[in-house]
Computed example of a mutant assay.
Amino acid sequence: MNEPGRGRWSVPGGRVEPGEDDHAAVVRELFEETGLTVRPGRLVGTVTRAPYRIADYLCDTAPGSPTTPHPGDDADDARFVDRAAYDALPVVEGLTETLAGWSCLPRR
Score class of each variant (00 low, 15 high):
residue 1 M to H: 11
residue 2 N to F: 12
residue 2 N to R: 13
residue 3 E to S: 14
residue 4 P to Q: 02
residue 5 G to R: 09
residue 6 R to H: 08
residue 6 R to C: 06
residue 6 R to L: 14
residue 6 R to A: 14
residue 7 G to T: 04
residue 7 G to D: 06
residue 9 W to Q: 07
residue 10 S to M: 08
residue 10 S to I: 00
residue 11 V to G: 08
residue 12 P to C: 05
residue 13 G to I: 00
residue 15 R to C: 13
residue 15 R to Q: 13
residue 15 R to E: 10
residue 15 R to M: 15
residue 15 R to K: 09
residue 18 P to H: 12
residue 18 P to S: 11
residue 19 G to W: 00
residue 20 E to G: 04
residue 21 D to L: 01
residue 22 D to P: 03
residue 25 A to G: 10
residue 25 A to C: 03
residue 25 A to L: 03
residue 26 V to I: 15
residue 29 E to I: 13
residue 29 E to P: 00
residue 29 E to G: 00
residue 31 F to H: 14
residue 31 F to E: 05
residue 32 E to T: 01
residue 33 E to M: 00
residue 33 E to G: 01
residue 34 T to H: 02
residue 34 T to E: 06
residue 36 L to N: 00
residue 36 L to W: 01
residue 37 T to S: 14
residue 38 V to P: 02
residue 38 V to L: 05
residue 38 V to N: 07
residue 38 V to H: 09
residue 39 R to P: 00
residue 40 P to Y: 00
residue 40 P to H: 01
residue 41 G to D: 08
residue 43 L to K: 10
residue 43 L to D: 08
residue 44 V to Y: 07
residue 45 G to E: 02
residue 46 T to D: 05
residue 46 T to E: 12
residue 48 T to Q: 12
residue 49 R to C: 04
residue 49 R to K: 13
residue 50 A to G: 11
residue 51 P to H: 02
residue 51 P to W: 01
residue 52 Y to S: 08
residue 52 Y to D: 15
residue 52 Y to M: 09
residue 53 R to A: 10
residue 53 R to L: 15
residue 54 I to L: 15
residue 54 I to C: 06
residue 55 A to P: 03
residue 55 A to S: 15
residue 56 D to K: 09
residue 56 D to L: 14
residue 57 Y to R: 10
residue 57 Y to H: 13
residue 58 L to F: 01
residue 58 L to S: 10
residue 59 C to T: 09
residue 59 C to L: 03
residue 59 C to D: 08
residue 60 D to Q: 07
residue 62 A to E: 12
residue 64 G to D: 03
residue 64 G to L: 03
residue 64 G to M: 02
residue 64 G to T: 04
residue 65 S to M: 02
residue 65 S to G: 05
residue 66 P to M: 10
residue 70 H to C: 00
residue 71 P to C: 06
residue 73 D to Q: 02
residue 73 D to M: 06
residue 73 D to Y: 09
residue 75 A to F: 12
residue 77 D to H: 11
residue 78 A to D: 03
residue 79 R to I: 02
residue 79 R to H: 12
residue 80 F to H: 11
residue 80 F to R: 11
residue 81 V to G: 08
residue 82 D to W: 04
residue 83 R to D: 06
residue 85 A to H: 09
residue 86 Y to Q: 06
residue 86 Y to L: 09
residue 87 D to L: 13
residue 87 D to N: 14
residue 88 A to F: 05
residue 88 A to N: 09
residue 89 L to H: 08
residue 90 P to D: 15
residue 91 V to Y: 06
residue 91 V to E: 05
residue 93 E to N: 07
residue 95 L to G: 00
residue 95 L to D: 13
residue 96 T to R: 14
residue 96 T to S: 12
residue 96 T to E: 15
residue 96 T to H: 13
residue 96 T to N: 07
residue 99 L to Q: 07
residue 100 A to Q: 14
residue 100 A to W: 03
residue 100 A to Y: 06
residue 100 A to H: 06
residue 101 G to L: 00
residue 101 G to S: 05
residue 102 W to D: 03
residue 102 W to C: 08
residue 102 W to H: 04
residue 103 S to L: 01
residue 104 C to R: 12
residue 105 L to H: 07
residue 105 L to M: 01
residue 107 R to K: 11
residue 107 R to A: 15
residue 108 R to H: 15
residue 108 R to T: 09
